[in-house]
Design a protein around this nucleic acid. Structure first.
Length: 615
RNA sequence: GACUCCAUAGCUCAGCUGGAUAGAGCAGCCGCCUUCUAAGCGGCAGGUCGGAGGUUCGAAUCCUCCUGGAGUCGCCA
């Protein structure tokens, strides 16, 4: 039940609104998203002043934002309420703020409220609010930070979708890790997520794969095949495919024409390649829910989905016979100016209309891809996310245009582009030559540095920025290596708990009842402020489809914690374990345990392990 | 030629969808180990946010133009 939505339906019923506001308060206190809690409280204040006639009653309180001030000396929360609403209220921001201020200062848990700069209102909160964040973490554990913002809405995240023509390379790995972490993030934020892989098992590439496999088949039968001809896949990974074919079919395929053996060999090769890819993904702890075959759209299904799509587009006059101007840029030798079936992509924001049929009458890749995205929509996914490599950037416009057309504007596609990965070893670029079929595979990298390092580093960067991946650095055990730094912080938390056992044997229940009010040091409060931001961060990262924000957050939390740890050196009374003060020790252990819990939570969203000790 | 993305400290990058005096980490300099893991921490220094306009209370963030880099352009997938 969305209470916020109810509020908008009840503009005039004051008592009902108040009751809902208080209900919402209770829920938000439980969830312990301080920022959202105060957003609603402040909005309620603005509304109340609207009822009292101080402000117009028509103000749009949803524009109010509440965030941590950049400078902590400004307070715990800052709101822009006066700045965004002053114009509609017909008064300068500062006057607006002055009228609002008393109401905010009177809010529960607010110790001071002041106007600053152009009209910000800074609030200071009673430490007990931050203590209750720790309580919330300990009570909710791995659920803390989870959001219901997604409202169970179905989201389809399509990622990897590498051609089934060979093992995955490092670039694929980035998209794989990104897509998987994004999917986890979205489900943590309350969406119903499906991870999907589109198998490009139709078209010329897989025919070539089939022919390459057939060559290996002949080789397995003892024939000397010499060098692999230009245009076929030379990689060794097809040798076992050939051997398996020889085992099941003997020499019988040699008698047949290509038209007869190709479908069979091709499918065997595709299956083998998909097994290979699934294995590579598994090494990164990635599992897709759905593997969707491109071929199944037009062959072997109950109906030809592509034909059905074209029919529908035709009915809606979105297909016409026309000519395209020749492409600019590098001249294309075999460019053929002809009249053909074109999709009116320009009506939906694309630059040119796009062909749907090849000259031989078969479907273009694009036609299949539209039908595929329509299938997602028909399967209940109004929200679709595609994760693509940088080289497909030019495809975004036509695909989003197509989704608009094929779903009658009801489907939404967000395409996330993963930029290139530069593989380095101690600063030196590792050359990747593809022509010999001899390139560094993703699997080799994972085997060398481990999945934690691969996953974290690929997420410790915005998806649309290029990424340097240094095989030497990512396994370094030093603070220069963010993977290690964060995992070490988690291990340190666990270590504190182990050390403390000899002094106090604190049960989980003891921690929940800890006298948190004794935690008054600025560094301790700083850590609690950081913990308080977690739920808000999860929501904004999910909304923006940006899992890297989680990676940066856990790094910051780790830094706060290392800092807190070292405070105990200069100030022995700030050490976690205080021999003769059981109450204080338990309070500190409660804080440490909540840090550990949130670190583990963030790492789990990223798919990175949270070790209890470093070896 | 067109489109897309990028440009922030010497280097590698954040900057929470428009907020206050732009932040981290390396590298540099100065400190902190008889004390819970120094695998760490603190401090100093470092900037015309590529450039020029515009939008407004307010711009690294949005719009236009320019410069420099990457990618794409197909009946490929």
């Amino acid at each position: 039940m969305n209470i916020a939505a109810c509020l908008t339906l009840l503009p005039n019923c004051v008592s009902a609104r108040e009751s809902l506001h208080s209900k919402l308060d209770q829920i938000l206190i439980k969830i312990m998203n301080l920022f959202e809690l105060f957003q609603h409280r402040i909005a309620a204040c603005v509304e109340a002043l609207g009822q009292e006639g101080v402000f117009p009653s028509s103000l749009d309180a949803s524009r109010i934002t509440v965030e941590p001030p950049r400078d902590p000396s400004h307070g715990d929360l800052a709101t822009n309420a006066a700045m965004v609403l002053s114009k509609d209220a017909g008064m300068p921001p500062r006057s607006f703020a002055e009228k609002l201020l008393p109401k905010l200062a009177a809010l529960e848990g607010v110790t001071s409220a002041e106007i600053a700069g152009p009209g910000f209102i800074n609030l200071r909160l009673h430490a007990s609010l931050f203590h209750s964040v720790v309580n919330a973490v300990l009570a909710q554990r791995e659920i803390f930070g989870m959001s219901t913002k997604g409202k169970g809405q179905k989201v389809n995240v399509e990622f990897v979708s590498a051609n089934p023509t060979g093992p995955m390379h490092v670039g694929h790995g980035r998209g794989a890790v990104f897509g998987d972490a994004l999917a986890s993030l979205l489900s943590f934020a309350g969406y119903d997520v499906t991870r999907e892989y589109y198998i490009n098992d139709a078209g010329a590439q897989v025919d070539i794969l089939g022919r390459s496999a057939f060559l290996r088949y002949r080789e397995a039968l003892g024939e000397d095949i010499g060098a692999i001809p230009e245009g076929l896949y030379p990689g060794d990974y097809l040798i076992p495919v050939g051997e398996a074919l020889a085992k099941t079919h003997g020499s019988s395929l040699l008698m047949k024409s290509e038209a007869e053996w190709l479908p069979l060999v091709r499918q065997a090769a595709i299956n083998a390649m998909m097994d290979l890819i699934r294995d590579d993904l598994l090494a990164l702890a990635i599992k897709h829910d759905v593997f969707f075959s491109e071929r199944s759209l037009s062959v072997g299904g109950e109906r030809d989905e592509i034909a059905a799509l074209l029919d529908e587009l035709k009915k809606r006059d979105l297909i016409y016979q026309g000519r395209l101007p020749p492409p600019k840029g590098a001249p294309i030798e075999d460019w053929e100016d002809r009249e053909q079936a074109l999709f009116r992509a320009t009506q939906f924001g694309d630059d040119v209309d796009r062909p749907l049929l090849k000259s031989d009458g078969s479907y273009t890749y694009f036609a299949a891809d539209i039908a595929y995205h329509r299938s997602k929509y028909l399967r209940g996914f109004a929200t679709m996310i595609d994760v693509w490599g940088a080289d497909h950037g030019g495809y975004i416009k036509r695909m989003t245009a197509a989704v608009k057309a094929a779903t009658d504007g009801l489907g939404d596609l967000d395409v996330k582009i993963c930029q290139l990965v530069r593989l380095l070893r101690n600063g030196e670029q590792v050359r990747m030559s593809k022509r010999s079929g001899d390139f560094i595979t993703l699997r080799e990298v994972v085997d060398e540095v481990g999945l934690d390092a691969v996953r974290f580093m690929m997420l410790y960067r915005k998806n649309d920025a290029t990424l340097d991946f240094d095989l030497g650095k990512v396994i370094e055990q030093s603070k220069d290596n963010p993977v290690f730094y964060v995992q070490y912080a988690h291990a340190r938390c666990a270590s504190v708990a182990r050390q403390a056992l000899t002094v106090v044997n604190a049960s989980d229940d003891d921690l929940k009842k800890a006298a948190l009010k004794r935690l008054t040091d600025e560094a301790e409060l700083g850590v609690m402020r950081r913990l308080a931001q977690y739920p808000r961060l999860v929501e904004s990262a999910a909304l923006a489809h940006e899992p890297h924000r989680i990676a940066f957050y856990v790094h910051e939390l780790a830094s706060d914690f290392h800092s807190l740890w070292n405070r105990g050196k200069d100030h022995p009374d700030l050490r976690f374990v205080i021999e003769n003060d059981r109450e204080m020790t338990i309070a500190r252990l409660a804080l440490v345990d909540s840090v550990r819990t949130v670190l583990a939570s963030g790492l789990s969203v990223l798919g990175v392990s949270a070790p209890n000790e470093m070896r």
